[in-house]
């Protein structure tokens, strides 16, 4: 059976791993290669690297560290941040990344999704969606790397999920912004609603604080994977311990 994926996310800024709360106040966590190696050895199923600096400052990711990661781990990993065109995606993938994740550039130029899928195959193309609940609707935000740059793009999250699939996305990471970094659990209702229309793998992001949160998101919203950052970086939950727990809860995981 296809297992549920546990995916640590490493926010990278100037070559170092950092973590913010609701996208603000980044604090230093450590060296990306060290952390990547550690998570890989602990049986993380995949890693996501999000280059904050590239995305916010409109610069593209500098690529040397991607090669270092590829050389040091043998599990799949995805790179996000500042990937705006085929040329940049190609450079990132040829450095050894397995997938590229695009967010704001997909909103600004939806045709890029199809172009990427045609060039590299859908399995390489992850669409990151930052979804904000404005107390009425779930809406898509862009440039969320800093509070100054962030804006609502005028799209309903559900419609955008449908559109990116039609355009060739191979996976969707749904970041529920109201939950990011606050450790109160994933946004089960939103994820379950999106799951109904999402025919490609769906990854939950934002809100993990306890082992139970992972159990709930897999059981109640049937996502394919769960992404988390600070619970792993702070050693609050180890991946091994989490997987043992999920297995006890009859959730299929790789050990």
């Amino acid at each position: 059976m296809l297992t549920k994926r546990i995916i640590p996310c490493l926010d990278v800024k100037n070559g170092k791993v950092v973590k913010g709360v609701q996208f603000k106040n980044h604090r230093l966590i450590g060296d990306p290669i060290k952390l990547a190696t550690k998570y890989s050895e602990e049986n993380a199923d995949e890693l996501v690297f999000y280059d904050i600096y590239s995305s916010v400052e409109s610069k593209s990711v500098s690529l040397g560290w991607i090669n270092d990661i590829a050389q040091n781990i043998n599990i799949p990993f995805c790179v996000a941040g500042g990937i705006k065109n085929i040329k940049k995606a190609k450079e990132v993938l040829y450095m050894g990344a397995d997938k590229v994740s695009i967010n704001t550039p997909a909103i600004q130029n939806p045709g890029l999704i199809t172009e990427l899928a045609k060039t590299f195959g859908s399995q390489c193309v992850v669409i990151g969606i930052d979804s904000f609940f404005d107390q009425k609707n779930y809406v898509v935000c862009a440039k969320t790397g800093s509070t100054k740059s962030r804006y609502e793009v005028g799209k309903n999250t559900l419609d955008w999920v449908k559109e990116v699939q039609d355009r060739g996305a191979g996976e969707i990471v749904l970041n529920c912004m109201n939950r990011d970094g606050v450790k109160e659990g994933y946004d089960i209702d939103q994820l379950a609603m999106i799951r109904e229309v999402c025919k490609v793998p769906l990854i939950a992001s934002g809100g993990a604080g306890e082992k139970e949160h992972f159990k709930k998101v897999f059981k109640l919203s049937n996502v394919d994977g769960a992404l988390a950052a600070s619970v792993f970086h702070d050693n609050k939950i180890s991946i091994e311990e989490l997987k043992n727990y999920l297995k006890e809860q009859k959730i299929e995981v790789r050990k």
Binding site: D45, S122, Q123, G170, E171, K199, P201, D224
Partner: peptide, 10 residues
Amino acid sequence: LTIPHMGWNE
């Protein structure tokens, strides 16, 4: 099924 078949399988 969600497609692609993506992740770890036995």
